[in-house]
Design a protein around this nucleic acid. Structure first.
Lengths: 246, 246
DNA sequence: CCAACGATGCGCACAGTGTTCGCTAACTGG
DNA sequence: CCAGTTAGCGAACACTGTGCGCATCGTTGG
Protein backbone atom coordinates (compact mmCIF):
# COMPACT_ATOMS: atom_id res chain seq x y z
CA UNK A 1 0.00 0.00 0.00
CA UNK A 2 2.65 2.46 0.98
CA UNK A 3 4.65 1.18 -1.98
CA UNK A 4 1.70 1.94 -4.19
CA UNK A 5 1.50 5.40 -2.73
CA UNK A 6 5.06 6.01 -3.74
CA UNK A 7 4.65 4.55 -7.20
CA UNK A 8 1.69 6.75 -7.93
CA UNK A 9 3.67 9.84 -7.25
CA UNK A 10 1.37 12.68 -6.48
CA UNK A 11 -2.09 11.45 -5.73
CA UNK A 12 -2.37 13.74 -2.71
CA UNK A 13 -0.33 16.53 -4.15
CA UNK A 14 -3.24 17.81 -6.13
CA UNK A 15 -2.35 21.02 -7.93
CA UNK A 16 -5.64 22.49 -6.70
CA UNK A 17 -5.54 25.09 -9.40
CA UNK A 18 -8.42 27.49 -9.29
CA UNK A 19 -8.47 28.91 -12.79
CA UNK A 20 -11.78 30.63 -13.04
CA UNK A 21 -10.38 34.12 -12.65
CA UNK A 22 -11.33 34.88 -16.26
CA UNK A 23 -13.69 33.16 -18.65
CA UNK A 24 -10.24 31.81 -19.61
CA UNK A 25 -11.05 30.96 -23.21
CA UNK A 26 -13.50 32.25 -25.76
CA UNK A 27 -13.89 31.80 -29.47
CA UNK A 28 -13.28 35.47 -30.09
CA UNK A 29 -10.07 35.42 -28.08
CA UNK A 30 -8.88 32.27 -29.82
CA UNK A 31 -9.28 33.53 -33.36
CA UNK A 32 -7.75 36.87 -32.38
CA UNK A 33 -4.67 35.12 -31.06
CA UNK A 34 -4.61 32.89 -34.11
CA UNK A 35 -4.51 35.96 -36.34
CA UNK A 36 -1.69 37.38 -34.26
CA UNK A 37 0.26 34.13 -34.55
CA UNK A 38 -0.32 33.94 -38.30
CA UNK A 39 0.83 37.52 -38.73
CA UNK A 40 3.92 36.95 -36.65
CA UNK A 41 5.14 33.56 -37.84
CA UNK A 42 3.29 32.70 -41.02
CA UNK A 43 0.91 29.98 -41.99
CA UNK A 44 3.16 27.00 -41.36
CA UNK A 45 3.66 28.01 -37.75
CA UNK A 46 0.00 27.80 -36.84
CA UNK A 47 -0.50 24.66 -34.80
CA UNK A 48 -3.11 23.96 -32.20
CA UNK A 49 -0.51 23.24 -29.55
CA UNK A 50 1.40 26.44 -30.13
CA UNK A 51 -1.79 28.45 -30.20
CA UNK A 52 -2.85 26.75 -27.01
CA UNK A 53 0.31 27.58 -25.12
CA UNK A 54 0.09 31.17 -26.33
CA UNK A 55 -3.28 31.37 -24.63
CA UNK A 56 -2.00 29.65 -21.51
CA UNK A 57 -4.13 26.64 -22.30
CA UNK A 58 -3.76 23.10 -23.52
CA UNK A 59 -4.06 22.35 -27.19
CA UNK A 60 -7.19 20.28 -26.95
CA UNK A 61 -9.01 22.87 -24.94
CA UNK A 62 -9.48 24.88 -28.09
CA UNK A 63 -11.76 22.23 -29.48
CA UNK A 64 -14.44 23.24 -27.00
CA UNK A 65 -14.81 26.50 -28.89
CA UNK A 66 -13.80 25.55 -32.44
CA UNK A 67 -14.72 22.43 -34.35
CA UNK A 68 -11.68 22.06 -36.59
CA UNK A 69 -8.45 23.70 -37.45
CA UNK A 70 -10.09 24.42 -40.78
CA UNK A 71 -13.01 26.14 -39.10
CA UNK A 72 -10.58 28.17 -37.04
CA UNK A 73 -8.81 29.31 -40.18
CA UNK A 74 -12.11 30.20 -41.78
CA UNK A 75 -12.95 32.31 -38.76
CA UNK A 76 -9.53 33.94 -38.84
CA UNK A 77 -10.04 34.89 -42.47
CA UNK A 78 -13.35 36.55 -41.79
CA UNK A 79 -11.95 38.18 -38.69
CA UNK A 80 -9.32 39.82 -40.85
CA UNK A 81 -11.89 40.94 -43.39
CA UNK A 82 -13.61 42.56 -40.44
CA UNK A 83 -10.83 45.14 -40.55
CA UNK A 84 -12.30 46.39 -43.79
CA UNK A 85 -13.68 49.85 -43.22
CA UNK A 86 -15.96 50.32 -46.19
CA UNK A 87 -15.49 53.72 -47.77
CA UNK A 88 -18.33 56.17 -47.89
CA UNK A 89 -20.72 54.84 -50.49
CA UNK A 90 -23.38 57.49 -50.24
CA UNK A 91 -22.43 59.39 -53.39
CA UNK A 92 -23.00 57.33 -56.56
CA UNK A 93 -21.50 60.12 -58.66
CA UNK A 94 -18.11 59.05 -57.36
CA UNK A 95 -18.69 55.36 -57.95
CA UNK A 96 -15.32 55.07 -59.63
CA UNK A 97 -13.29 56.51 -56.77
CA UNK A 98 -15.36 54.57 -54.27
CA UNK A 99 -14.78 51.30 -56.08
CA UNK A 100 -11.08 52.05 -56.23
CA UNK A 101 -11.00 52.82 -52.54
CA UNK A 102 -12.79 49.57 -51.88
CA UNK A 103 -10.34 47.57 -53.96
CA UNK A 104 -7.38 49.23 -52.32
CA UNK A 105 -8.88 48.52 -48.93
CA UNK A 106 -9.07 44.83 -49.70
CA UNK A 107 -5.54 44.90 -51.08
CA UNK A 108 -4.28 46.60 -47.95
CA UNK A 109 -5.93 44.06 -45.70
CA UNK A 110 -4.46 41.12 -47.57
CA UNK A 111 -1.00 42.66 -47.67
CA UNK A 112 -1.21 43.36 -43.95
CA UNK A 113 -1.81 39.65 -43.42
CA UNK A 114 0.10 37.92 -46.21
CA UNK A 115 -0.85 34.44 -45.02
CA UNK A 116 -4.27 35.20 -46.48
CA UNK A 117 -2.84 34.40 -49.89
CA UNK A 118 -2.56 30.74 -48.95
CA UNK A 119 -6.11 30.71 -47.69
CA UNK A 120 -7.89 32.32 -50.60
CA UNK A 121 -7.96 28.94 -52.25
CA UNK A 122 -9.51 27.34 -49.20
CA UNK A 123 -12.36 29.70 -48.53
CA UNK A 124 -15.53 30.44 -50.41
CA UNK A 125 -15.43 33.92 -48.85
CA UNK A 126 -19.01 33.73 -47.72
CA UNK A 127 -18.16 35.38 -44.44
CA UNK A 128 -20.57 38.02 -43.19
CA UNK A 129 -18.07 40.83 -43.45
CA UNK A 130 -17.47 40.41 -47.15
CA UNK A 131 -21.15 39.88 -47.83
CA UNK A 132 -22.05 43.20 -46.29
CA UNK A 133 -19.41 44.94 -48.35
CA UNK A 134 -20.68 43.30 -51.52
CA UNK A 135 -24.24 44.35 -50.85
CA UNK A 136 -23.27 47.95 -50.22
CA UNK A 137 -21.13 48.05 -53.34
CA UNK A 138 -23.94 46.63 -55.44
CA UNK A 139 -26.31 49.24 -54.07
CA UNK A 140 -23.97 52.07 -54.96
CA UNK A 141 -23.28 50.77 -58.47
CA UNK A 142 -26.98 50.40 -59.05
CA UNK A 143 -27.52 53.95 -57.91
CA UNK A 144 -24.73 55.01 -60.25
CA UNK A 145 -26.65 53.71 -63.23
CA UNK A 146 -25.57 50.08 -63.57
CA UNK A 147 -28.31 47.53 -64.05
CA UNK A 148 -28.04 45.01 -61.24
CA UNK A 149 -26.68 42.28 -63.49
CA UNK A 150 -23.98 44.54 -64.86
CA UNK A 151 -23.16 45.80 -61.40
CA UNK A 152 -22.68 42.22 -60.31
CA UNK A 153 -20.45 41.46 -63.27
CA UNK A 154 -18.39 44.55 -62.63
CA UNK A 155 -18.01 43.76 -58.95
CA UNK A 156 -17.02 40.18 -59.60
CA UNK A 157 -14.49 41.26 -62.18
CA UNK A 158 -12.91 43.82 -59.89
CA UNK A 159 -12.96 41.35 -57.05
CA UNK A 160 -11.29 38.61 -59.04
CA UNK A 161 -8.64 41.04 -60.19
CA UNK A 162 -7.91 42.21 -56.67
CA UNK A 163 -7.71 38.66 -55.41
CA UNK A 164 -5.42 37.50 -58.17
CA UNK A 165 -3.13 40.51 -58.14
CA UNK A 166 -2.88 40.83 -54.39
CA UNK A 167 -2.66 37.11 -53.88
CA UNK A 168 0.40 37.00 -56.08
CA UNK A 169 1.89 39.98 -54.30
CA UNK A 170 1.34 38.43 -50.92
CA UNK A 171 2.78 35.13 -52.07
CA UNK A 172 5.89 36.91 -53.28
CA UNK A 173 6.26 38.80 -50.02
CA UNK A 174 5.76 35.61 -48.05
CA UNK A 175 8.47 33.85 -49.98
CA UNK A 176 10.77 36.81 -49.46
CA UNK A 177 10.12 36.80 -45.75
CA UNK A 178 10.70 33.07 -45.51
CA UNK A 179 13.96 33.22 -47.39
CA UNK A 180 15.10 36.04 -45.14
CA UNK A 181 16.48 37.98 -48.07
CA UNK A 182 15.63 41.46 -49.19
CA UNK A 183 14.15 42.22 -52.57
CA UNK A 184 17.46 43.59 -53.82
CA UNK A 185 19.38 40.55 -52.68
CA UNK A 186 16.96 38.39 -54.61
CA UNK A 187 17.42 40.43 -57.74
CA UNK A 188 21.18 40.19 -57.31
CA UNK A 189 20.99 36.45 -56.93
CA UNK A 190 19.01 36.12 -60.15
CA UNK A 191 21.46 38.20 -62.16
CA UNK A 192 23.29 35.25 -63.72
CA UNK A 193 20.02 33.69 -64.86
CA UNK A 194 19.27 36.93 -66.69
CA UNK A 195 22.09 36.45 -69.14
CA UNK A 196 20.36 33.49 -70.71
CA UNK A 197 16.96 35.10 -70.28
CA UNK A 198 18.00 37.99 -72.43
CA UNK A 199 18.53 35.66 -75.33
CA UNK A 200 15.43 33.49 -75.03
CA UNK A 201 12.99 36.01 -73.54
CA UNK A 202 14.08 39.46 -74.67
CA UNK A 203 10.86 41.26 -73.78
CA UNK A 204 10.60 39.91 -70.25
CA UNK A 205 14.24 40.70 -69.78
CA UNK A 206 13.79 44.26 -71.00
CA UNK A 207 10.88 44.80 -68.64
CA UNK A 208 12.80 43.45 -65.69
CA UNK A 209 15.84 45.60 -66.24
CA UNK A 210 13.68 48.64 -66.88
CA UNK A 211 12.07 48.19 -63.47
CA UNK A 212 15.26 47.31 -61.69
CA UNK A 213 15.82 50.75 -60.21
CA UNK A 214 12.26 51.49 -59.13
CA UNK A 215 11.08 51.22 -55.58
CA UNK A 216 9.31 47.85 -55.60
CA UNK A 217 6.56 48.88 -53.20
CA UNK A 218 5.63 51.93 -55.23
CA UNK A 219 5.88 49.95 -58.46
CA UNK A 220 3.43 47.34 -57.24
CA UNK A 221 1.01 50.01 -56.15
CA UNK A 222 1.15 51.58 -59.57
CA UNK A 223 0.73 48.29 -61.38
CA UNK A 224 -2.26 47.51 -59.23
CA UNK A 225 -3.82 50.90 -59.88
CA UNK A 226 -3.11 50.64 -63.60
CA UNK A 227 -4.96 47.36 -64.06
CA UNK A 228 -7.80 48.53 -61.88
CA UNK A 229 -8.17 51.65 -64.00
CA UNK A 230 -8.30 49.62 -67.19
CA UNK A 231 -10.97 47.35 -65.71
CA UNK A 232 -13.10 50.28 -64.61
CA UNK A 233 -12.71 51.80 -68.06
CA UNK A 234 -14.00 48.63 -69.63
CA UNK A 235 -16.77 48.16 -67.13
CA UNK A 236 -18.15 51.67 -67.27
CA UNK A 237 -19.64 51.28 -70.74
CA UNK A 238 -22.32 49.09 -69.16
CA UNK A 239 -23.67 52.08 -67.30
CA UNK A 240 -26.90 53.56 -68.61
CA UNK A 241 -25.68 56.69 -70.34
CA UNK A 242 -22.79 55.03 -72.07
CA UNK A 243 -19.06 55.36 -71.67
CA UNK A 244 -18.89 58.73 -69.95
CA UNK A 245 -16.43 58.23 -67.16
CA UNK A 246 -16.80 59.25 -63.49
CA UNK B 1 27.56 -16.71 -30.33
CA UNK B 2 24.79 -19.00 -31.51
CA UNK B 3 22.50 -17.20 -29.13
CA UNK B 4 23.49 -13.94 -30.74
CA UNK B 5 22.83 -15.43 -34.13
CA UNK B 6 19.30 -16.23 -33.11
CA UNK B 7 18.67 -12.89 -31.48
CA UNK B 8 19.78 -11.02 -34.55
CA UNK B 9 17.41 -12.79 -36.74
CA UNK B 10 18.47 -12.51 -40.32
CA UNK B 11 22.05 -11.47 -40.55
CA UNK B 12 22.80 -14.15 -43.11
CA UNK B 13 19.44 -14.16 -44.76
CA UNK B 14 20.17 -11.20 -46.91
CA UNK B 15 17.27 -10.44 -49.26
CA UNK B 16 19.72 -9.98 -52.13
CA UNK B 17 17.25 -7.86 -54.04
CA UNK B 18 18.44 -6.91 -57.44
CA UNK B 19 16.29 -3.95 -58.40
CA UNK B 20 17.99 -2.39 -61.33
CA UNK B 21 15.54 -3.61 -63.94
CA UNK B 22 14.40 -0.06 -64.64
CA UNK B 23 15.94 3.26 -63.81
CA UNK B 24 13.34 2.75 -61.07
CA UNK B 25 12.89 6.39 -60.12
CA UNK B 26 13.32 9.67 -61.88
CA UNK B 27 12.34 13.21 -61.12
CA UNK B 28 10.06 13.35 -64.13
CA UNK B 29 8.28 10.19 -63.11
CA UNK B 30 7.90 11.39 -59.54
CA UNK B 31 6.27 14.70 -60.35
CA UNK B 32 4.04 13.01 -62.94
CA UNK B 33 2.79 10.59 -60.33
CA UNK B 34 2.42 13.44 -57.85
CA UNK B 35 0.17 15.25 -60.30
CA UNK B 36 -1.87 12.10 -60.74
CA UNK B 37 -2.23 11.69 -56.99
CA UNK B 38 -3.21 15.34 -56.53
CA UNK B 39 -5.80 15.06 -59.28
CA UNK B 40 -7.24 11.89 -57.83
CA UNK B 41 -7.32 12.62 -54.11
CA UNK B 42 -6.74 16.32 -53.62
CA UNK B 43 -4.09 18.33 -51.94
CA UNK B 44 -4.43 16.93 -48.42
CA UNK B 45 -3.78 13.42 -49.66
CA UNK B 46 -0.34 14.17 -51.02
CA UNK B 47 2.19 12.70 -48.64
CA UNK B 48 5.66 11.51 -49.38
CA UNK B 49 4.94 8.04 -48.07
CA UNK B 50 1.81 7.59 -50.15
CA UNK B 51 3.54 8.92 -53.22
CA UNK B 52 6.42 6.57 -52.55
CA UNK B 53 4.28 3.47 -52.32
CA UNK B 54 2.48 4.48 -55.49
CA UNK B 55 5.82 4.37 -57.22
CA UNK B 56 6.76 1.09 -55.61
CA UNK B 57 9.43 2.83 -53.60
CA UNK B 58 10.08 3.93 -50.08
CA UNK B 59 9.14 7.41 -49.01
CA UNK B 60 12.64 8.59 -48.35
CA UNK B 61 13.89 7.48 -51.74
CA UNK B 62 12.15 10.45 -53.28
CA UNK B 63 14.57 12.78 -51.57
CA UNK B 64 17.31 11.61 -53.91
CA UNK B 65 15.49 13.38 -56.73
CA UNK B 66 13.63 16.18 -54.99
CA UNK B 67 14.87 18.45 -52.25
CA UNK B 68 11.63 19.19 -50.45
CA UNK B 69 7.98 18.53 -50.56
CA UNK B 70 7.68 22.20 -51.38
CA UNK B 71 10.01 21.84 -54.31
CA UNK B 72 8.05 18.84 -55.50
CA UNK B 73 4.87 20.86 -55.41
CA UNK B 74 6.54 23.65 -57.31
CA UNK B 75 7.57 21.19 -59.96
CA UNK B 76 4.09 19.72 -60.08
CA UNK B 77 2.62 23.17 -60.67
CA UNK B 78 4.92 23.86 -63.58
CA UNK B 79 4.35 20.37 -64.93
CA UNK B 80 0.65 21.15 -65.09
CA UNK B 81 1.26 24.46 -66.79
CA UNK B 82 3.18 22.44 -69.33
CA UNK B 83 -0.20 21.22 -70.55
CA UNK B 84 -0.81 24.71 -71.87
CA UNK B 85 -0.91 24.57 -75.62
CA UNK B 86 -0.38 28.18 -76.55
CA UNK B 87 -2.79 29.26 -79.25
CA UNK B 88 -1.52 30.43 -82.59
CA UNK B 89 -0.02 33.84 -81.96
CA UNK B 90 1.16 34.60 -85.45
CA UNK B 91 -1.65 36.98 -86.38
CA UNK B 92 -1.56 40.18 -84.31
CA UNK B 93 -4.78 41.35 -85.96
CA UNK B 94 -6.61 38.81 -83.83
CA UNK B 95 -4.83 39.78 -80.62
CA UNK B 96 -8.15 39.91 -78.81
CA UNK B 97 -9.28 36.41 -79.69
CA UNK B 98 -5.81 35.07 -79.09
CA UNK B 99 -5.64 36.62 -75.63
CA UNK B 100 -9.06 35.22 -74.84
CA UNK B 101 -7.98 31.79 -75.99
CA UNK B 102 -4.89 32.08 -73.84
CA UNK B 103 -6.91 33.05 -70.76
CA UNK B 104 -9.39 30.27 -71.33
CA UNK B 105 -6.52 27.84 -71.72
CA UNK B 106 -5.14 28.78 -68.33
CA UNK B 107 -8.60 28.58 -66.83
CA UNK B 108 -9.11 25.13 -68.31
CA UNK B 109 -5.80 23.89 -66.95
CA UNK B 110 -6.53 25.10 -63.46
CA UNK B 111 -10.05 23.68 -63.47
CA UNK B 112 -8.69 20.36 -64.67
CA UNK B 113 -6.44 20.31 -61.60
CA UNK B 114 -8.41 22.12 -58.92
CA UNK B 115 -5.72 21.63 -56.28
CA UNK B 116 -3.82 24.34 -58.13
CA UNK B 117 -6.04 26.85 -56.37
CA UNK B 118 -4.36 26.05 -53.05
CA UNK B 119 -0.95 26.40 -54.59
CA UNK B 120 -1.34 29.71 -56.38
CA UNK B 121 -0.54 31.40 -53.10
CA UNK B 122 2.61 29.37 -52.67
CA UNK B 123 4.23 29.82 -56.04
CA UNK B 124 5.83 32.76 -57.72
CA UNK B 125 4.90 31.18 -61.08
CA UNK B 126 8.37 31.65 -62.45
CA UNK B 127 8.28 28.24 -64.04
CA UNK B 128 9.69 27.96 -67.55
CA UNK B 129 6.38 27.02 -69.11
CA UNK B 130 4.59 30.15 -67.98
CA UNK B 131 7.56 32.32 -68.86
CA UNK B 132 7.53 31.11 -72.43
CA UNK B 133 3.83 31.82 -72.71
CA UNK B 134 4.31 35.30 -71.29
CA UNK B 135 7.06 36.11 -73.73
CA UNK B 136 5.02 34.98 -76.71
CA UNK B 137 1.99 36.92 -75.54
CA UNK B 138 4.06 40.06 -75.09
CA UNK B 139 5.47 39.67 -78.58
CA UNK B 140 2.03 39.38 -80.09
CA UNK B 141 0.60 42.33 -78.19
CA UNK B 142 3.57 44.42 -79.23
CA UNK B 143 2.99 43.43 -82.84
CA UNK B 144 -0.65 44.36 -82.38
CA UNK B 145 0.30 47.91 -81.55
CA UNK B 146 0.76 47.96 -77.79
CA UNK B 147 3.87 49.65 -76.48
CA UNK B 148 5.81 47.10 -74.45
CA UNK B 149 4.93 48.70 -71.12
CA UNK B 150 1.25 48.72 -71.95
CA UNK B 151 1.42 45.18 -73.23
CA UNK B 152 2.94 44.17 -69.93
CA UNK B 153 0.25 45.98 -67.97
CA UNK B 154 -2.46 44.39 -70.06
CA UNK B 155 -1.00 40.93 -69.68
CA UNK B 156 -0.59 41.27 -65.95
CA UNK B 157 -4.14 42.52 -65.58
CA UNK B 158 -5.57 39.67 -67.57
CA UNK B 159 -3.39 37.22 -65.75
CA UNK B 160 -4.42 38.46 -62.32
CA UNK B 161 -8.05 38.30 -63.33
CA UNK B 162 -7.74 34.75 -64.58
CA UNK B 163 -5.95 33.68 -61.44
CA UNK B 164 -8.45 35.32 -59.10
CA UNK B 165 -11.54 34.18 -60.95
CA UNK B 166 -10.41 30.65 -61.64
CA UNK B 167 -8.85 30.26 -58.23
CA UNK B 168 -12.18 31.01 -56.63
CA UNK B 169 -13.92 28.63 -58.98
CA UNK B 170 -11.49 25.86 -58.25
CA UNK B 171 -11.77 26.46 -54.52
CA UNK B 172 -15.52 26.19 -54.75
CA UNK B 173 -15.32 22.98 -56.76
CA UNK B 174 -12.81 21.55 -54.32
CA UNK B 175 -15.06 22.26 -51.38
CA UNK B 176 -17.97 20.68 -53.25
CA UNK B 177 -15.96 17.58 -53.99
CA UNK B 178 -14.79 17.28 -50.41
CA UNK B 179 -18.28 17.64 -49.01
CA UNK B 180 -19.48 15.01 -51.45
CA UNK B 181 -22.58 17.00 -52.26
CA UNK B 182 -23.76 18.22 -55.62
CA UNK B 183 -24.20 21.86 -56.43
CA UNK B 184 -27.98 21.58 -56.21
CA UNK B 185 -27.85 19.87 -52.83
CA UNK B 186 -25.73 22.73 -51.56
CA UNK B 187 -28.20 25.30 -52.84
CA UNK B 188 -31.01 23.37 -51.18
CA UNK B 189 -29.15 23.27 -47.90
CA UNK B 190 -28.66 27.02 -47.94
CA UNK B 191 -32.34 27.75 -48.61
CA UNK B 192 -33.23 28.57 -44.99
CA UNK B 193 -30.35 31.02 -44.72
CA UNK B 194 -31.78 32.85 -47.72
CA UNK B 195 -34.90 33.92 -45.83
CA UNK B 196 -32.85 36.22 -43.63
CA UNK B 197 -30.56 37.15 -46.48
CA UNK B 198 -33.49 38.53 -48.42
CA UNK B 199 -34.09 41.08 -45.70
CA UNK B 200 -30.53 42.18 -45.01
CA UNK B 201 -28.97 41.71 -48.45
CA UNK B 202 -31.74 42.12 -51.02
CA UNK B 203 -29.49 42.56 -54.03
CA UNK B 204 -27.32 39.52 -53.38
CA UNK B 205 -30.46 37.55 -52.73
CA UNK B 206 -32.05 38.70 -55.99
CA UNK B 207 -28.94 37.72 -57.93
CA UNK B 208 -28.81 34.31 -56.31
CA UNK B 209 -32.40 33.47 -57.01
CA UNK B 210 -32.15 34.79 -60.55
CA UNK B 211 -29.29 32.38 -61.21
CA UNK B 212 -30.84 29.48 -59.38
CA UNK B 213 -32.13 27.75 -62.49
CA UNK B 214 -29.10 28.19 -64.71
CA UNK B 215 -26.62 25.47 -65.41
CA UNK B 216 -23.77 26.37 -63.03
CA UNK B 217 -21.01 25.30 -65.39
CA UNK B 218 -22.33 27.38 -68.27
CA UNK B 219 -22.98 30.30 -65.93
CA UNK B 220 -19.39 30.33 -64.68
CA UNK B 221 -18.08 30.22 -68.22
CA UNK B 222 -20.21 33.20 -69.14
CA UNK B 223 -19.23 35.18 -66.07
CA UNK B 224 -15.59 34.51 -66.81
CA UNK B 225 -15.96 35.58 -70.44
CA UNK B 226 -17.90 38.69 -69.43
CA UNK B 227 -15.23 40.01 -67.11
CA UNK B 228 -12.52 39.16 -69.57
CA UNK B 229 -14.33 41.08 -72.29
CA UNK B 230 -14.64 44.14 -70.07
CA UNK B 231 -10.93 44.00 -69.26
CA UNK B 232 -9.94 43.74 -72.90
CA UNK B 233 -12.26 46.64 -73.68
CA UNK B 234 -10.52 48.74 -71.10
CA UNK B 235 -7.07 47.64 -72.11
CA UNK B 236 -7.45 48.16 -75.82
CA UNK B 237 -7.41 51.97 -75.60
CA UNK B 238 -3.68 51.73 -74.88
CA UNK B 239 -3.08 50.46 -78.37
CA UNK B 240 -1.57 52.92 -80.82
CA UNK B 241 -4.52 53.78 -82.97
CA UNK B 242 -6.91 54.22 -80.09
CA UNK B 243 -10.00 52.34 -78.98
CA UNK B 244 -10.93 50.71 -82.26
CA UNK B 245 -11.93 47.20 -81.37
CA UNK B 246 -11.53 44.22 -83.66
C1' DC C 1 -26.66 23.82 2.58
C1' DC C 2 -25.84 20.17 -0.07
C1' DA C 3 -26.33 17.25 -4.28
C1' DA C 4 -26.56 16.91 -8.94
C1' DC C 5 -25.42 18.77 -13.44
C1' DG C 6 -23.72 20.79 -17.62
C1' DA C 7 -19.83 23.11 -19.25
C1' DT C 8 -15.00 23.63 -19.54
C1' DG C 9 -10.07 22.54 -19.47
C1' DC C 10 -6.64 19.05 -20.07
C1' DG C 11 -3.41 14.75 -20.13
C1' DC C 12 -2.97 10.79 -22.80
C1' DA C 13 -2.83 8.34 -26.85
C1' DC C 14 -3.13 7.31 -31.81
C1' DA C 15 -2.24 7.57 -36.38
C1' DG C 16 0.17 10.11 -39.54
C1' DT C 17 3.49 13.83 -41.24
C1' DG C 18 8.21 15.69 -43.34
C1' DT C 19 12.82 14.88 -43.05
C1' DT C 20 17.73 13.06 -41.40
C1' DC C 21 21.04 9.51 -40.91
C1' DG C 22 23.59 5.55 -41.88
C1' DC C 23 23.51 1.40 -44.13
C1' DT C 24 23.43 -1.81 -48.16
C1' DA C 25 23.63 -2.97 -52.84
C1' DA C 26 24.16 -1.88 -57.40
C1' DC C 27 26.37 0.59 -61.28
C1' DT C 28 30.56 2.95 -63.30
C1' DG C 29 35.14 4.31 -64.85
C1' DG C 30 39.94 3.00 -64.74
C1' DC D 1 38.81 -6.70 -60.96
C1' DC D 2 38.55 -3.16 -57.87
C1' DA D 3 37.52 1.77 -55.94
C1' DG D 4 34.23 5.18 -55.87
C1' DT D 5 29.96 7.09 -56.63
C1' DT D 6 25.12 6.78 -56.18
C1' DA D 7 20.12 5.09 -55.61
C1' DG D 8 17.16 3.12 -52.46
C1' DC D 9 15.65 2.12 -47.90
C1' DG D 10 14.58 1.09 -42.72
C1' DA D 11 14.66 3.25 -38.42
C1' DA D 12 14.16 7.19 -35.86
C1' DC D 13 12.92 12.06 -34.46
C1' DA D 14 10.21 15.79 -33.67
C1' DC D 15 5.97 17.18 -34.82
C1' DT D 16 1.00 17.40 -36.30
C1' DG D 17 -4.54 17.24 -35.70
C1' DT D 18 -7.73 15.27 -32.97
C1' DG D 19 -10.87 11.65 -30.04
C1' DC D 20 -11.51 9.98 -25.32
C1' DG D 21 -12.21 10.07 -20.61
C1' DC D 22 -11.43 12.35 -16.34
C1' DA D 23 -11.07 16.31 -13.08
C1' DT D 24 -12.80 20.42 -11.89
C1' DC D 25 -15.55 24.35 -11.92
C1' DG D 26 -20.00 27.70 -11.48
C1' DT D 27 -24.71 27.14 -11.26
C1' DT D 28 -29.08 25.56 -9.76
C1' DG D 29 -32.99 22.84 -7.68
C1' DG D 30 -34.53 20.57 -3.64
Amino acid sequence: MTADDRQIPSVWARPSRERREQPALSRQQIVAEAVRLLDAEGVDALSMRKLGTRLGAGATSLYRHVANKDELVELAVDEVFGELRAPDMSDPAHWRETTIACAQGIRAVILRHPWMASMLGAMAYLGPNLMRLSEDLLAMLEAAGFPLTEANGAMNTVFAYVLGMTGSEAAWLTMLARSGQSEDEWAERLKPAFENLHRTHPRLSALFTAQADDDPVRRREEEFAYGLDRILDGVSVARTGGPTFD
